[in-house]
Structure formats: structure tokens, C-alpha cells
């Protein structure tokens, strides 16, 4: 069928479809490109970048949990300079949009990174990680302090001409407040949600399993929580939301779109089903065409748009 519009926009950045891959689950796109045609993806959010190279956390970094996994990688990455020199030129050839995910140890570093990436034509947008649970200096401290969210958003916006996506932490009482704060400071979009903090204990060693003690929970187990947060937030902000958290198949992706996400990201499922994101691209399109929609954007938020009287309660 011609004329069907699969894509969406964030500021000036255009995505050919609504299916992107989440930061930390797809490297810089190069590994999975050996297996599948990544040019069919809407985009790829890079592994979280820091200003300087980071070794990441020591000890156990991952732990599988029912329907999900905990990770405490601790932002191991080559640093923004090496990213620009060694990885971005290759990633740019993959035929999909590259979103640079940035993470600062302090406010200034967010600004420096935004500046360093601003003239990189192959970076479509910046995704600002204010919510990594595994880095003590910045990360969660920023993501759970609403004043810091305001400051980081305003600073990054001032330092870049690229669309700015703020990646929100779910580890707060009311995520809609943080979403509105980011929007008020000029954020072009929101990514939600980052991982939920959790832990595991080794009963034989009688010690925490992860070297970092706590880690971020991802995978199908967190999907209902993420979906609820997108549903609530989408009704309070006007900027696009990229929904993520346990999306494992087309049905999950559709739920997020119907909840109000303009695009989605797959994460943990990539580790198990490298081809799944491409199946979701087709699945969303087929669902929309089969149900008489002319674009994917037509289904965004239908779970609440059809009936303005649906109440959003924080608890049932």
C-alpha cells in the first residue's frame, strides 16, 4: 500500500518508522548489522556516552530475573571523542538515524558533550541520560531531582541545535512532574522509561549478586509499569514520547503507541531476538493498515483520546 506513513518526527529529526533500539542494548549498531538489516530500523540510540572513556563497574554486572534482567554496567564506553572518531563514521553508514545518548558526571559535562556533538551531522538527536541507576556521580541523582532535570535540560538545549530527548527515570513518585519540567525547559521529546532499580542476593555467598549492589531492571517484567507511565505522561505533555520498557513484540509496541508514545524502543529483547525489532516494524504497519489507519501517528494515544473522560488514577 502506498501513501501509508510509518514515520514520526522529533523537532527537525525525521524517523522512517516508529521502531528504534534502546541505548545500551544495541552498542553502536555495528554488531547487529552483521545479523540483520538495521537500515530498516527507525533509529538507534547509542550506548550511553560520557565525556571521558569509562571502565564501568567491577564485579558481576548482569543477573537474570523472572521475565527480565538486572544490569549494573556502569556506563562502560569509549567516551565522546572516540565515539565521534571511531564509531560514528561507521554507524552513519548503517542507513538509520543515530541518536547519541549522553551522560554527564556533573552539569558541566552534559553541556560539554552537547557542544562536542552539535556539529556532527550524523547525529540526529541527543538523548540525555539523566537516569542511569548505575553511576553514582550523576545519573539517578539528576533524574530524581526535579531542579536538576530543569537545569540539565535548559543547559543542553542552550548548547545544541539538535533535538533534545530527555530520558526519564521511573524511580520517582510522579514521573509526570518530571516530564512537564523537562518540557517547560524546552525538551523536544521524552524517552521513558529508563530501568527500575533493583537487586539480587546470592544466598550461598550471602552477599548482593551485582558488584554495584543495585542495578537497573529491564525486560518484559517492567512493561506494565512503563506503559502506565507513558499513558499518564502523554496526557500531560505536548512533546513526543518515545516509549520503552519491556517491549518484546508487536503487541507490546502497539500498546505503547496507543498509550500515547509517538515512537518506541526495543531493549532487552534484542539480546534474545536480534530480528524482532524489524518484525515489529512490519507488525505495526500491518495492524494500522488492517484497521484502516493511514499513518502510525493516527493510533498514538487512542487509548485515552477517544474518551476524554477516562480517569487517570495513580492507584487503583
Amino acid at each position: 500500500m502506498t501513501g501509508f506513513n510509518e514515520g514520526f518526527k522529533i523537532g527537525e529529526a525525521e524517523f522512517k518508522n516508529t521502531v528504534l533500539t534502546a541505548s545500551g542494548t544495541y552498542g553502536f549498531g555495528l554488531e547487529y548489522a552483521r545479523l540483520i538489516d538495521v537500515s530498516k530500523l527507525g533509529g538507534i540510540a547509542t550506548k550511553g556516552l560520557s565525556l571521558k572513556p569509562k571502565m564501568g563497574n567491577s564485579g558481576e554486572r548482569i543477573y537474570e530475573t523472572p521475565g527480565g534482567m538486572l544490569n549494573s554496567i556502569g556506563l562502560e564506553n569509549p567516551g565522546v571523542e572516540s565515539f565521534i572518531k571511531d564509531y560514528l563514521p561507521k554507524a552513519a553508514k548503517l542507513g538509520t538515524q543515530i541518536i547519541a545518548n549522553i551522560s554527564g558526571a556533573n552539569l558541566e559535562e552534559y553541556g560539554e558533550m552537547a557542544e562536542a556533538l552539535d556539529d556532527q551531522k550524523d547525529v540526529a538527536a541527543l538523548e540525555v541520560n539523566i537516569s542511569c541507576p548505575n553511576v553514582k556521580a550523576g545519573g539517578i541523582a539528576f533524574g530524581t531531582d526535579i531542579n536538576m532535570v530543569r537545569k540539565v535540560t535548559a543547559l543542553v538545549k542552550a548548547k545544541t541545535t539538535k533535538p533534545v530527548i530527555i530520558k526519564l527515570s521511573p524511580n520517582v513518585t510522579d514521573i509526570t512532574q518530571f516530564a512537564m519540567a523537562a518540557e517547560a525547559e524546552g525538551a523536544d521529546a521524552l524517552s521513558m522509561i529508563n530501568t527500575l532499580i533493583g537487586m539480587g542476593i546470592d544466598i550461598n555467598k550471602r552477599k548482593p549478586i551485582l558488584g554495584n549492589v543495585i542495578g537497573g531492571l529491564s525486560g518484559p517484567a517492567i512493561k506494565p509499569v512503563a506503559l502506565r507511565m507513558v499513558y499518564q505522561t502523554a496526557q500531560k505533555v505536548k512533546i513526543p514520547i518515545i516509549g520503552m520498557g519491556g517491549i518484546s513484540d508487536t503487541r507490546d509496541a502497539l500498546e505503547f503507541l496507543l498509550a500515547g508514545a509517538s515512537g518506541i524502543m526495543t531493549g532487552t529483547i534484542n539480546f534474545r531476538e536480534p530480528q524482532r525489532s524489524l518484525e515489529i516494524v512490519d507488525g505495526i504497519k500491518n495492524y494500522c493498515i488492517d484497521n484502516g489507519f493511514k499513518s502510525v501517528s493516527e493510533i498514538v494515544g487512542l487509548a485515552w483520546k477517544e474518551d476524554k473522560n477516562v480517569k487517570v488514577n495513580s492507584c487503583s
Partner: peptide
Amino acid sequence: TRMACGIGVCLGCTVVPAEEGKPY
């Protein structure tokens, strides 16, 4: 080691190098 992706993406299967200061 514990491992998630198996292809170098998740960075979960860390092994400590003998040479200090080198990346995992």
C-alpha cells in the same frame, strides 16, 4: 561468565585484564 547478548553489545560478561588501566 554471566552473559546476556553474546555478541559484544550488553557489556555484561566482564573479564579483568592483567594489564592495569586497560579496558575490561
